[in-house]
């Protein structure tokens, strides 16, 4: 797989305008992930090549940040808040219900490749607790209840 011309020029643009090649590493990974869902070896290496940094340096960054995915994730991403305000409003009941419905735990993807479930720190939606952010656009949803699971899964599909 190779990167699209658009992605290649976007990476060059960030490098030229936002502080040079090193500063552009994370943004390159983010843009690749936004387009492809995750960052595969070939894409990481191609971006490293455009920026003129080594693959190892690129990998160093990719593995540090928890929201850069170096393995495939489901089409539908659910990032559930495990912060205290969500806990205090029944977040763990919703978590358990989602896990039971999907048959997976945090950090896992359903066998059909549809859903990936990840726990994340406070998503800044404590006034909608328990909250989650879902999908590639990180849409904030909440307050969640166990009966709203179908809706959550539906929203994540968008």
């Amino acid at each position: 797989m190779t990167l699209s011309t658009d992605l290649r020029s976007a990476i060059t643009h960030v490098m030229d305008h936002h502080g040079g090649p090193r500063a552009a590493m994370l943004e390159s990974l983010r843009m690749i992930q936004q387009a492809h869902g995750w960052v595969c070896d070939a894409h990481l290496e191609e971006a490293a090549d455009i920026l003129g940094v080594s693959n190892a340096e690129m990998e160093d960054i990719a593995t540090f940040y928890s929201l850069i995915f170096r393995q495939p994730v489901g089409e539908r991403l659910i990032l559930m808040c495990d912060g205290a305000s969500c806990y205090l409003n029944g977040g763990e009941d919703v978590r358990d219900a989602v896990m039971a419905r999907l048959g997976i735990g945090f950090g896992q993807t359903t066998p059909d490749g549809k859903y990936t479930l990840i726990n994340i720190c406070c998503v800044g939606g404590c006034d909608h607790a328990p909250a989650a952010v879902i999908g590639r656009d990180r849409k904030l949803v909440g307050p969640l209840t166990a009966d709203l699971i179908d809706e959550i899964l539906g929203e994540a599909a968008k």
Binding site: H18, R22, L29, R30, D60, I61, F64, S66, L67, I68
Partner: peptide, 23 residues
């Protein structure tokens, strides 16, 4: 500069490292 997770990025000197393309 959009970030990509990790609470420690908010610590100001860690944030500077992040902007330099380091862990």
């Amino acid at each position: 500069h959009p970030s990509a997770g990790r609470y420690i990025v908010g610590e100001e000197t860690a944030l500077i490292e992040a902007l330099e393309g380091k862990r």
